[in-house]
Design a protein around this nucleic acid. Structure first.
Length: 351
DNA sequence: AATCCGGGGGA
DNA sequence: TCCCCAGGATT
C-alpha cells in the first residue's frame, strides 16, 4: 500500500471517498466540456444548478449552437466571466459547422475551439475519451505544489511549467479518467486551501509540504496588488413597471450583457435623460454599493428616474424598455440584478 | 478584506 | 512569450 505509486493511491482513494454524484460524471463530451468551462472560474456548488439548467434548455451541442447569444448569456447570468458564455456559444457553432455536431477527440483540435485551452482540452480528452492527458487547474496546482514541494507562485510562468511537468510525470498508464477526477476531488475536499485534511490524505506519507510541516506555505500566494476604485452612475429610468436597459459592447466588462445606462457623473446621466426625452422631475439617488472585480472596484451610484411618458424621440441604439420581471430573466450582471431586486422589494413595501 | 481562478488577446 | 483582463463565491 505505502509503496504504491501516487496515482494508484489517488485512484483507490477516489473509488472509496471521491465524489460520484456530479451530474457530468461519466457523461458525453458535450457535458464534460460544458461542466469544465463552467468550472474554470467557479466552484462546484455554484456550477451544478447552472449546469442542470443549461442541459435542460440545450440538451446537445446542436441545440446550443442554434440558440442566440442573448439566450446563452441569459442562462449564464450571474456566473461571471461572460466571455466564457460567448466562447461557449461560438465553440458550439464551430462544432456543428466544422465537425458535423460531433465533438472532436483530438487534443489539438479541441484547443482550436474558443474557450478551450490546454487544461480544458486535456480534461475533455481524459474524462470523456479516456485518453492519457494531464490537466492542471487550480485544485491540481495546489495538490502538486504541496506534494512536490514546488516553491513559487503558480501564476509565474516557470513555476507553472514545472507543475505541468509534474502533472505529466504523475499520470498513470491507465484509469486516467478516475485519476483525473481523483486529483480534482482531492483538491476540493482534502487538499483545500485552508484547513486541509492531511490525516485523511492517501499521499501524505510522501507529501513534501506535509512532511516539512509547511502545508500552509504551498502554493505560494499571488503577489499583492492594490486595486483602484472607480466611480459610476447607473441610471434606473422607469416608466411604470418598465425599465430602460442598454446592451454592452461585445467585449470588456459584462460584454454582450444588458446593463443599466452607465455614466461617469450624475450630470452626464441627466444630460442623457434630457437628450433622449426622459423626464427627470422625479429623480433621486438610491444607496450606493461597491462591486469588486479582480483588478478594480466599481463604486456604483444608482440614480432612479421616473418618467411619466416613454420617450418618443429616437431611442438610443441598443436600448430596450422591459418590464422589471422580464429584465430579471434577461442576460444581466449581478449588480444589475441586485438593483432590480431592490426595486421590486421597494415597490412591495411602498418605498 | 483577502483570496482564488483557465483562457483570450494584445504588447 | 509575457502581461493584462475578467465576476463572483468563500473564508
Amino acid at each position: 500500500m505505502a509503496g504504491d505509486s501516487f496515482a494508484v493511491r489517488l485512484i483507490r482513494w477516489q473509488r472509496q471517498h471521491g465524489r460520484h454524484d456530479l451530474p457530468w460524471q461519466g457523461a458525453d463530451a458535450y457535458r464534460v466540456w460544458l461542466s469544465e468551462v463552467m468550472l474554470q472560474q467557479t466552484q462546484v456548488t455554484t456550477v451544478v444548478p447552472y449546469f442542470l439548467r443549461f442541459i435542460e434548455r440545450f440538451p446537445d451541442v446542436v441545440a446550443l449552437a442554434a440558440a442566440t447569444e442573448d439566450e446563452v448569456l441569459a442562462l449564464w447570468s450571474g456566473l461571471g466571466y461572460y466571455s466564457r458564455g460567448r466562447n461557449l456559444h461560438r465553440a458550439a457553432q464551430k462544432v456543428v459547422s466544422q465537425f458535423g455536431g460531433v465533438f472532436p477527440e483530438h487534443f489539438e483540435q479541441l484547443q482550436e475551439l474558443p474557450g478551450i485551452g490546454r487544461s480544458t482540452a486535456a480534461a475533455i480528452c481524459a474524462l470523456a475519451f479516456h485518453q492519457r492527458r494531464a490537466i492542471l487547474d487550480g485544485n491540481v496546482k495546489r495538490v502538486l505544489a504541496r506534494h512536490g514541494g514546488v516553491a513559487g507562485w503558480p501564476g509565474d510562468g516557470r513555476v507553472e511549467a514545472e507543475l505541468w511537468k509534474l502533472a505529466e510525470a504523475r499520470l498513470p498508464a491507465s484509469d486516467v479518467a478516475i485519476y483525473t477526477q481523483a486529483l480534482m476531488d482531492m483538491g476540493a475536499t482534502l487538499c483545500r486551501r485552508s484547513k486541509p485534511r492531511c490525516q485523511e490524505c492517501p499521499v501524505h506519507t510522501d507529501c513534501a509540504a506535509y512532511q516539512a510541516d509547511r502545508v500552509a506555505e504551498f502554493p505560494a500566494a499571488r503577489p499583492k496588488k492594490v486595486v483602484p476604485e472607480r466611480q459610476a452612475v447607473f441610471l434606473l429610468a422607469m416608466h411604470g413597471n418598465d425599465i430602460l436597459l442598454e446592451k454592452r459592447p461585445p467585449s470588456g466588462i459584462w460584454g454582450g450583457l444588458w446593463s443599466l445606462p452607465q455614466f461617469d457623473t450624475a450630470e452626464e446621466a441627466r444630460a442623457y435623460c434630457t437628450r433622449t426625452g426622459i423626464e427627470t422631475n422625479e429623480c433621486r439617488e438610491l444607496p450606493g454599493f461597491v462591486h469588486t472585480f479582480s483588478h478594480f472596484k466599481l463604486s456604483i451610484h444608482p440614480l432612479l428616474v421616473s418618467s411619466q411618458r416613454i420617450p418618443t424621440q429616437a431611442a438610443e441604439a441598443g436600448t430596450v424598455w422591459l418590464e422589471v420581471s422580464d429584465a430579471l430573466q434577461a442576460a444581466i450582471s449581478t449588480p444589475v440584478r441586485q438593483l432590480l431586486l431592490t426595486l421590486n422589494a421597494g415597490r412591495a413595501t411602498g418605498i
